[in-house]
Design a binder for these strands. Structure first.
Lengths: 96, 96
DNA sequence: ACGGCATGCTTGCAAAATGAAAGTGCTGCG
DNA sequence: CGCAGCACTTTCATTTTGCAAGCATGCCGT
């Protein structure tokens, strides 16, 4: 299987890359991610579990019964790919 | 909606980025894409239609009743994002 | 101590996307 | 004419995604 296929097994499912993008700005709590992304709550919970299992992010306990989600080094390494995709979408017909 | 979300509307669905990756090596025929990617044939047809509508690729008529699929300039511009994702997957725990 | 509230999920079920398998239409070739 | 190869389409099962409601935990005010 190609490297790209391997990457897509982890960040291919819907919402996964968008979650990582939000976390590039720093750790976020569950409710914040949900509100800012508009993700269905069950999907958000599922994706966070999968991304944690893949070593992309980890749970960061906070006060009370709250926690935050933060990127691991492996998660932070997605920044290049995310900005590349964002730039592609932002580029109009392209500099001829 | 963020740029990333816009990009994922086009290349987010399953197989889409893998199809583009194969076409980076030059135009390919339908049967070749199917055999090399292992894509279900109905999905391949659907994705090719969507990617053509999005201006990522175009049909290139060949002899007889055959045709090839080739990337537009916009499709070629995905190379950076594809290699970034591929590199991410290929990188082990990362250079500490 | 206890009820209410915020946060972070889980559960049940409907809708949409994906997949497997078989079938269709066209074209050239013998 | 009949057959084979290519490019799909169609049908139906399975998986993924989404919506809405419910549950668990822990603080906070009274």
């Amino acid at each position: 299987m190609s490297d790209l296929a391997t990457a897509l097994e982890i960040v291919g499912p819907r919402w996964a890359l968008l979650i990582v993008e939000r976390l590039l700005d720093g750790p976020q709590r569950y409710g914040d991610l949900q509100r800012e992304l508009g993700t269905p709550t069950n999907m958000l919970a599922t994706r966070l579990r999968e991304l944690e299992a893949a070593g992309v992010l980890y749970r960061l306990p906070l006060k009370h019964n709250t926690r935050a989600y933060a990127l691991t080094e492996r998660g932070l390494a997605l920044r290049a790919a995310i900005t590349a995709l964002g730039r592609w979408a932002a580029d109009e017909i392209g500099p001829s």
